[in-house]
Design a binder for these strands. Structure first.
Length: 198
DNA sequence: CGTTTTTGACCTGCGC
DNA sequence: GCGCAGGTCAAAAACG
């Protein structure tokens, strides 16, 4: 089962990198999943100047193209403190600060993708100094309702799936079906990431 | 009435 | 030094 998960993760990572290559025509380092190349060059230079500084985590969230709220349900409570229209993207960028703890340094920026308005990009900056109300990437969490397709953060999402007993059962069933040849076309491992091979 | 959102002003860093 | 762009502040408005 872990082997199957590993293969699936590898496929999804390569798929994500292909998408980013097409969108931005740049090569992405293989250990930076979802890190957008349009990341401001001046800031990138600063980060490279301080190699110990953590690079911000970027999460892609599928949403309705007409949804202008830029709200991402990720298990934390965020307070919006600013909004800006940036030069390289007509969609406004919203700035959020964690409101679950007064002294929490965690922040995030949320902006729609330049090329696909149905995808919003959340850039997380800083770490929470408190717990989370619910697992942000667990399939049963509020992040996975009808109007919000799961965040495409492969490693954490896969990790949460492994912990999910329901998923384990489904996965085991799918593996059994594959082995017995009852289901060739679809592996039954649809991770609902909107990144299927179709 | 407390909390959150909105939005224009302000601050800061960078390139020229 | 100046202008530009991104990020933050804070007062007013909106909301529950």
């Amino acid at each position: 089962m872990l082997e199957v998960m590993k293969i699936k993760c590898t496929n999804l990572e390569s798929h994500l990198q292909e998408i980013n290559k097409v969108e931005h025509k740049e090569i992405i380092s293989s250990n930076q999943i979802g890190l957008l190349p349009n990341f401001d060059t001046s800031k990138r230079a600063r980060l490279e100047h301080f190699p110990t500084a953590k690079k911000p985590l970027q999460v892609f969230v599928k949403t309705h193209p007409n949804d202008e709220s830029l709200m991402v349900k990720d298990g934390y409570q965020w307070r919006k403190y600013g909004q800006k229209v940036t030069k390289d993207n007509a969609s406004p960028r919203a700035y959020f600060r964690c409101s679950m703890a007064p002294s929490c340094p965690a922040k995030k920026k949320v902006q729609k993708s330049l090329h696909d308005k149905s995808i919003i990009v959340a850039t997380y900056d800083g770490e929470h100094n408190h717990g989370v109300s619910n697992d942000p990437f667990k399939p049963s969490s509020s992040a996975l309702n009808d109007s919000s397709i799961p965040n495409i953060k492969i490693e954490e999402y896969a990790s949460s799936l492994i912990k999910d007993p329901d998923f384990t059962a489904v996965l085991a069933n799918a593996v059994a079906k594959t082995i017995t040849g009852q289901e060739h076309k679809r592996l039954g491992l649809n991770l609902n990431l909107n990144l299927s091979e179709e």
